[in-house]
Amino acid sequence: MSYFKWPPPKRRKKLIIAFPGSVLVTEDTLELKTIKAGLLGRSLAIFRVNEALLFRDSDTTIRDLKLLRLLLKYMVTPPHIRRKAYPITSDLSAVGLLPPLRLYPHDIPQNVEVGVKIDGYVESCSGGECKVYLGRIGYGILRDYVKPGSIVTVEVKSIVNSKIILQVSSWGDIYTGFRVKVIYKLEDIINYYKSRSHTIILSSKYGEWIGNIANNIFAHLSRSKGALIIFGGPYKCPYEYTSSDLYDFIINTIPSQGTISVRTEEALIATLSALENLSVLS
């Protein structure tokens, strides 16, 4: 029996990941920072994360925080409209080092026909129509108003005299990537999702091995609307500067680790793999 599903389904419950902008502080060059962002972005997409929230710890610089947000948003944007959505700047000069995500909307159709869905970039609007850039397909006309500069999912409604007429659509129950937000204070993130009935989990070397509390986590997630999973940076874990009372669970997914430290991008894979086995968020 194959468990591979394509297109990938959305998760039944939201999965939100939070980590500090300081994940880039150990990298000395833009190229290395870009590679690090690429590793994080791949993990977020592979595990169908809904939102990536970036916060500021004592080691985070504003520059790294903004750069990480930019690179992750760039990655999740369909390649055929990236140059429109993100004109190349010095911060994006090394994006050739980013690995492709190959999310479902990233593969554009070979042929344009009625019913085809695609993400487009809204260039301009006037007279009740918007000009939407569709990559190598060219342009389509959307007879609706969408804010210029937006990325919109559209469907080909008709083709009239070689003009592609579009209508606003959606990808429905298909997973299409993660949103990226900066929320400076970790406590604000936790309080927001706690008030909305999410399970709050801290991944930390100071936590209890997940194997000992898997049943408790499963039961808690079953009752919640989703999960917020928090990771630390290269120098400090949130366990060291926040109250443990903020978390429903503090878990260790790499017991008896063989290295003195585990990098955030490594902990991300280990923790999401362990929680994926619980299946409750699927």
Rank of each mutant, 00 (worst) to 15 (best):
R12W: 12
T29D: 04
K14N: 14
A37T: 05
L68S: 08
D91S: 09
T26N: 15
V112D: 07
V49H: 04
K33S: 03
I81F: 06
K36L: 10
V122N: 03
M75I: 09
Y121I: 10
L97R: 04
Y86V: 06
R56E: 05
L97E: 11
T61G: 03
I35T: 11
S93E: 06
V95A: 07
S93K: 05
G115F: 07
G41C: 06
G96C: 09
L103R: 05
V116A: 11
L71H: 01
A18D: 02
G41H: 03
P100D: 07
P99D: 03
P78G: 10
D119I: 15
G115Y: 01
T60F: 02
P79H: 11
A94E: 15
V95C: 08
A85M: 12
P79D: 09
P109G: 03
L40G: 05
K66E: 13
K13L: 04
N50R: 08
Y121N: 05
R42S: 04
V76P: 01
L98Y: 03
A18G: 09
G38E: 01
L97V: 12
I35C: 07
T89H: 05
V116P: 08
E27T: 10
I108L: 11
L32R: 10
V76A: 13
S124L: 14
A37H: 04
V76Y: 01
I17G: 07
L103K: 08
S124C: 11
S58R: 14
L92W: 00
H106G: 06
I16T: 10
K66Y: 15
A85R: 11
P99T: 07
I46V: 15
I118P: 00
G127S: 09
L65Q: 01
S22I: 14
R48D: 04
I17R: 02
V116E: 09
E27D: 14
A18T: 03
T26S: 12
E27H: 13
I81C: 08
E123C: 09
S90P: 13
L24P: 02
T61H: 08
I62N: 12
H80A: 05
D91E: 15
A18H: 02
L30T: 11
I17S: 04
P105N: 08
R63Q: 15
F19T: 01
S43I: 15
L65W: 06
G21K: 00
L54P: 01
R63N: 13
I16Q: 02
E27M: 12
N111Q: 11
V49D: 00
L65K: 03
P79N: 04
L70P: 00
M75H: 04
A37G: 00
V122Q: 01
R82N: 07
L98F: 07
T61D: 02
D91R: 08
